[in-house]
Amino acid sequence: MIKLYRGDVIEVYYIDSKKGLKKRPVIVFQNPPKKSIDTISVYCTSQNDGDDDNVIFIESDSEEGRNMGLTKDTYIRPLIIRPIDSKFFVRKIGKCSLMQEIQKIVDRRMAS
């Protein structure tokens, strides 16, 4: 298992409702101090649920999209944070430089 850092964009497995085991990007929000604990990651999706205030939109052709290694236009949803077992990790695909923006959205929700 390779060492991960906050802001790393990684590809993880998920179960697609139709096609079985597939891959999706997530952003490392907090890396565990011990290997036994899951990595805390921020959810990314290509679908818009209309909550524009709490998402960050990244176009795959933009510089940020390329740095993050995204293949589709993607919505980062900082309010959906999940622990990911290291066994579901596929590979590192890029680096996200928007951690401050992500943190701001999380902090805003925590304060309200």
Binding site: Y14, L21, R24, C44, T45, D49, R82, I84, F88
Partner: peptide, 20 residues
């Protein structure tokens, strides 16, 4: 895929979110 426990954990991780 060969380990039901791991498989279920993976399903549960993303149970309430959209496919990518």
């Amino acid at each position: 895929l060969g380990n039901p426990e791991l498989y279920n954990k993976l399903v549960n991780t993303w149970a309430d979110v959209d496919d990518y």
